[in-house]
Amino acid sequence: MNIFRLTGDLSHLAAIIILLLKIWKSRSCAGISGKSQILFALVFTTRYLDLFTSFISLYNTCMKLIYIGCAYATVYLIYAKFRATYDGNHDSFRVEFLVVPVGGLSVLINHDFSPLEILWTFSIYLESVAILPQLFMISKTGEAETITTHYLFCLGLYRALYLFNWIWRFYFEGFFDMIAIVAGVVQTVLYCDFFYLYVTKVLKGKKLSLPA
């Protein structure tokens, strides 16, 4: 555990909680892509199946349970409790265009051709693109609430910090995982355009809106 890994995890946790609180406090999930949230729930479910097979640390187990619990709570709020506020018309990204290729790729390129390892690989690949429905939704409506942009910033920052964690681990532990690194780079790159808008607009007190 190094500082990048820890702050990355905390940034991830912050993102998840910001989103849950935003929906809960405003009693609305307007502007939030339910499809991205379903994909994240699927990511955590397929990645953390090792909760049943191996114990790593109390920290590891607790964080996994919190991530999974929050992911399903978010999906529940969007599709059940506050369903009336869900903006389904603008959440029109075709997720099968992500899930099917990612499923194929995880069967083809993995560390070990075993069910748990393939599901772990699937979750890594899927996470890298799971935010696309949300970004697509923002590009479609042309705007995002400021709290939603804080959520996206924390979520993007998390994977960027993991990249530094992997650089650290490569130098000091000789550890590297090519699948996680390549997917992590892809994931971080997808946020770059958003990071730019966040710094140039949101941090200067403006609302994030895109030119028509």
């Binding site: 890994r5 995890d9 991830h12 990645r47 090792d50 097979t53 191996s54 790593i56 640390s57 590891n60 964080m63 996994k64 991530y67 560390h111 070990d112 748990l116 390892e117 772990w120 993991y162 964690n165 000789g174 550890f175 590297f176 995982d177 699948i179 996680a180």
Partner: peptide
């Protein structure tokens, strides 16, 4: 090395 189970990262 390769990161095969167990995974310590989240």
């Amino acid at each position: 090395g390769l990161n095969i189970n167990p995974k310590d990262e989240l």
